[in-house]
Design a binder for these strands. Structure first.
Lengths: 195, 195, 195, 195
DNA sequence: AATGAATGAGGATTCATTCAT
DNA sequence: GATGAATGAATCCTCATTCAT
C-alpha cells in the first residue's frame, strides 16, 4: 500500500473507469459513485482529485482523443506517399484500440454533451480541426480545388461509421469500415488519374 | 371546453413539445415537467397519456422518423431514373425540414438512448433498414456486387454529416452536405460507366 | 384531507417550523429535512414550495420581522404623547410574543447570516431603518440635535438585551429589559426638563 | 527545520488563522481545511494539535476574550476616579484593536455557537461576569441600589453596538459608539449629582 | 379530462476525521 | 513533527411518478 504519489495513479484509474462505465451504460448518465466504485475508490476521492463530475468526464474525453491522436501519429509514421498516409488515417480511426464498443459509446455520448458543455464542445472541435488538417495536408497535392470538400466527406464518413456502429449488437466491424473508406479514397484517385 | 377527443390532441402536443424541448436543451436530459409545460399541460397529464417518460421520448423519436420517411416517399415520387431517386433520398435527408438544429440534436440524443432503450434501438434499426433497402433498390441495377458496400457508405455519409452538424454553432449547412453526398454518388457512377 | 389550496398552509407551516427548529437548535445550521419533518411534510415538498433552503430561512426571518412590526404598530396605537409611544416601542420589543428563546436565537442567527446572505442583510437593514425612524419620530420633538444619537443608543440597547439574552439558561427576562430601557429614556427626559 | 517546540507556534498560528478566517467568511461556517491552509499547515496537523474542529474554535474565542481582557486591564491602569475607569472600559471595548470587522463577526458567531457548545457558552459567561464585575466595582460607590441595573444596561449597550456594527458595510465607527456610551454614563452621573 | 399535492429514491458535493508513512 | 490519502456520513436538491379530487 504505497501512500504517496497516488494522485496520478488515481486520476488515471478514475478516467479509465469513467470511459468503461460510460461504455458499459452506453451514455453519460453515469454516477460518480459508479465510476469511483469501478476505480476501486470512494466517490469522495473522485471529487477530491477532480473537483466535479464534469471534470472527470472531460478528462475521459480528453484521454480518448489523445489515444486517437497518438495512434494517428504512429500510423502515419514512415508512410511515404499521400495515399499511404490517407490510408493510415483510416486504419488508425478504425483500429481495434479505438473502434471498441465502449469507446464508441463514449464518443457518441460526448457528441451529445457537446451541445451543452463548453469543455466537450471545445475538445471535439480540436479533434475535428486536427483530422481536417491531417486530411487536407494529403489531399491538397492530389485534388487542388476539391480538397476541402473531400476532406469534409472523408471526415463525415469516419464519424458516420462510428455512429452507425453504435446500433450494432455484434462486435464492431472495423474491417468493413476500413474497406469502404479506402474504396472511397481509391475511387477518387482513380478518377483524378483518368481525367 | 370539449371533453371528448382530447387524447390525440394532447398526445400530439406532448410529442411536439418533447422534440422541441430536446432540441432546445440539446440532450435527452429533459424533465417531464419541462415537456408538459411546453405543451401547456400538467406533468401528471403527460403521465396519464403516456404512462412513463420513456414512452414520451419513444413517441417523439417515432414521429421524427415518420416525418423523414414521409419526406423520402414524397421526394422519390415521380422520379424516373435510379440516379434521380438516389438524389431524391439525399435531398430529403438534408432538407430544411429535417436538417434542423433541434431535430439533429434530438436525432443524436436518440442514438445515445438506443444504447439503453430497446424501443429506441428498435426504431433506429427500422430507419436503418428502410434507408438501406431504399438505397439498395437503386444501386443494385447500377453496381451489382458493390451495391451493399456502397449503400452502407452512403448511409454512413448521411449520418456522418448529421453528427458533424451537431458541433457547428452556425445554422446547419444542408446544401454543402447535399453537394458532397451527390458528388460521391456521381463519381461512383462515372467510374462504373468508364470501366 | 383537503387537496387544494394547500400552498399557503404548507408555506406557513414550513416557516413556523423553520423558526422553531432554528430556536431549538440555536443556530441556522438546520437541515431542510429537520424543518420539513417538524412541519409534517417531506423535504421534497419544502423545496417544491420554496425552491431552496435559503428561501425558507429568509421567509422565516421575514415573518419574525413582520410579527415585530405588527406588534409595534399595535402597541403605539392610541398612545398620545411621545414618551408613551417610546415606551410602547420598548414594550413591544420585549413582549412575550417576541422576546422568546427561539425567536431570540433565530434573530441572532440571522444577524450572523447577514454577513453572508444578501437577503438577510437587506431584511435586517429594513428593520433597522424602521426602528430608527420610529424612534426619531418621537425623539425629535423632545431632543432636537441629540435625537439621532439617542435613537442609535436606544436601538443598540434593545439589540444588546436581545443578544445577552441568548446566553441565559433561564427564561428570558423581558421585564428587566423593559425596566432598564425605560429608565434610560426617562432619565434622559428628566435631564432635558431640568436643564 | 527545528523539530522541537513547534507545538506552541502551530497552535498560535492555527488560532489566529481561525479568527481571520471566521472574520473573513463572516460566520463560523469555516472548514478546518481553510483554517489550516491560512496557517500554512495541513488539516491533519490541525487535528493533531486540537483534536477537533470545535476545540480550534473554542481556542479562537478564548484568545479574543483574552485580548479584550488584557486591553481592559491596560486601559484602566493608572486611572484614578471611577468615572475615568468606566470611560476606560468603554474606550477599550471600542478600540481599533477590538472593534474590527473580523473580530466583530467572530464575536457574533461565537454568541450563536454558545447556544450549542458548552465551551463557547462557558467562555462568554466568563466575559459577561468579568465585565459586569468591572462595571459594578465602579458603579457601586456612585449609584448604590441602581448599580446592578445600570451595569446590565451598559453591558447591553456595548454588546448592542457590536451587533449593530455587523450590519454596516462601511468601516466600524468606534468613535460614535464611544461617544454614545460615555454620554449615557455622564448623563447618569449628572442626574445623580443633581438629585 | 385534468391537476395540485406529495413523496421516495437517488445524486453531486462537502467535510471532519483517521491513518499509514 | 507533519502530511497526503482516503472515506463515511451528511446535506441540498431534483425528478419521475402516484393519488385524491
Amino acid at each position: 500500500m504505497p501512500k504517496i504519489g497516488m494522485e496520478p495513479v488515481r486520476r488515471l484509474a478514475l478516467v479509465n473507469a469513467a470511459i468503461s462505465e460510460i461504455g458499459h451504460r452506453g451514455s453519460l448518465d453515469v454516477t460518480v459513485t459508479q465510476i469511483a466504485k469501478r476505480a476501486g475508490v470512494s466517490s469522495a476521492l473522485a471529487h477530491h482529485y477532480f473537483g466535479s463530475k464534469e471534470n472527470i468526464l472531460t478528462a475521459a474525453m480528453w484521454r480518448i482523443l489523445a489515444m486517437l491522436a497518438a495512434d494517428l501519429r504512429d500510423a502515419q509514421h514512415g508512410k511515404k506517399t499521400p495515399i499511404e498516409r490517407l490510408h493510415a488515417i483510416v486504419d488508425a480511426s478504425f483500429s481495434d484500440r479505438n473502434f471498441r464498443p465502449d469507446v464508441i459509446a463514449a464518443w457518441l455520448a460526448f457528441y451529445v454533451s457537446a451541445q451543452t458543455s463548453n469543455d466537450a464542445h471545445r475538445l471535439l472541435k480540436v479533434y475535428h480541426r486536427r483530422l481536417r488538417s491531417n486530411l487536407l495536408h494529403e489531399l491538397r497535392p492530389l485534388l487542388a480545388a476539391d480538397a476541402e470538400r473531400v476532406a469534409e466527406t472523408i471526415a463525415a464518413l469516419i464519424d458516420g461509421f462510428y455512429i452507425r456502429q453504435a446500433l450494432r449488437t455484434e462486435a464492431p466491424d472495423g474491417k468493413a469500415a476500413v474497406v469502404a473508406t479506402k474504396a472511397f479514397i481509391d475511387d477518387l484517385m482513380k478518377r483524378e488519374t483518368i481525367s
